[in-house]
């Protein structure tokens, strides 16, 4: 493990709200009062069902949106409000995001070598054209692509190859924080493992921190030091990977863990997951406050719920 918990947090999100007004009467509260920290060299896994606000948190942190409320502190800089040019520039180098929809985030008219090299260009990270090409080829190989791929356009790749182009683009600048939004979900297990091992190597070497957004809990379990469980924009439970997997407290977390598919056909055909329905659960997320379970394990709920769930 490379996480440094004695250091100042690399990223600190406090009371983040991200609302989207759709019409006069309809506002989507995509992220509702979320707080968490990511330490240097740490991998923080963010899990939760589709639509729970994971990508929105990532996009707010990297400031594709103006947060509705709350503060975001990164590398000791406040990045939640209006930023100075200097802060913006640092943010663009030190924080990178791997987007969930690779096709939508890659310019279809640009060759792969320029899509990846662009990041280097912006920040003048090389001395000669040869060095630029060399660095692009090196990172392509690291993510399991070939140097011949450098001259192709995004649509000439398979889905998983495209996803790796996005990964290469984010990693080439050696950022301090990488927001990886479902970055390996389209990859087969072997290449998933290759990319995850690569991310771990880079982390061990450079102390990179990852905000690892994913729904695949077996992979999250494998890669994360700590995990946050998100549902309907609320961060319901957080703790070390071990705390969450061995002692889930919130009924939502329990249902999520119970539904992990097992690659065993005879077993899988007869299995049923624990059902969880917020509407009929009697739980009101807006009434919850943070309760310490033990260690670094917290759950958001009312005092009564906490007493009932931990007895």
């Amino acid at each position: 493990m490379t996480a440094n918990y004695n250091a100042e947090p690399l990223l600190e999100v406090k009371g983040l709200k991200q609302y989207f007004p759709i019409s006069k009467t309809y506002t989507v509260k995509a992220v509702d009062d979320v707080s968490f920290k990511v330490y240097p060299g740490e991998t923080y896994g963010l899990v939760g069902e589709s639509g729970s606000g994971k990508s929105t948190i990532g996009r707010s942190i990297i400031r594709l949106y103006d947060p509705t409320e709350g503060t975001i502190n990164f590398c000791g800089m406040d990045i939640s409000g209006k930023m100075s040019k200097d802060v913006k520039e640092k943010l663009r180098i030190q924080m990178q995001m791997i987007f969930q929809d690779p096709m939508a985030s890659l310019n279809p008219r640009k060759k792969i070598k320029d899509i990846i090299g662009e990041a280097l260009d912006v920040h003048k990270f090389y001395n000669s054209k040869e060095e630029r090409d060399h660095r692009v080829e090196a990172i392509l190989e690291k993510v399991g692509l070939a140097k011949e791929h450098a001259d192709r356009y995004p649509h000439q790749f398979s889905g998983g190859q495209r996803q790796r182009v996005g990964i290469a683009r984010a990693l080439i600048l050696n950022p301090k924080l990488v927001i990886a939004d479902e970055c390996i979900s389209a990859l087969d297990v072997s290449i998933q493992a290759q990319v995850v091992n690569l991310m771990k190597d880079i982390q061990a070497e450079l102390g990179t921190a990852y905000l690892f957004i994913a729904h695949d809990l077996s992979m999250v379990k494998y890669i994360s030091d700590r995990i946050g469980v998100l549902h309907l924009g609320h961060l319901l439970e957080t703790g070390t990977t071990d705390e969450i997997f061995s002692n889930p407290i919130h009924p939502y977390t329990k249902s999520l863990l119970s539904a992990i598919p097992i690659p065993n056909p005879e077993l899988e055909k007869n299995r049923e997951a624990i059902n969880y329905d917020y509407k009929t659960s009697g739980i009101d997320y807006t009434k919850g406050t943070e309760h310490l379970v033990d260690g670094s394990h917290y759950v958001k709920c009312t005092d009564e719920e906490f007493a009932a769930w931990t007895k």
């Binding site: 899990v47 939760g48 069902e49 589709s50 969930q100 889905g159 479902e182 979900s185 389209a186 729904h215 809990l217 249902s255 999520l256 539904a259 992990i260 598919p261 997951a273 969880y276």
Partner: peptide, 14 residues
């Protein structure tokens, strides 16, 4: 279905 549930959590996938 080409990777139809890659972006889906396990509950919705099911």
């Amino acid at each position: 279905c080409d990777e139809p549930t890659t972006a889906l959590d396990v509950n919705i996938q099911a």
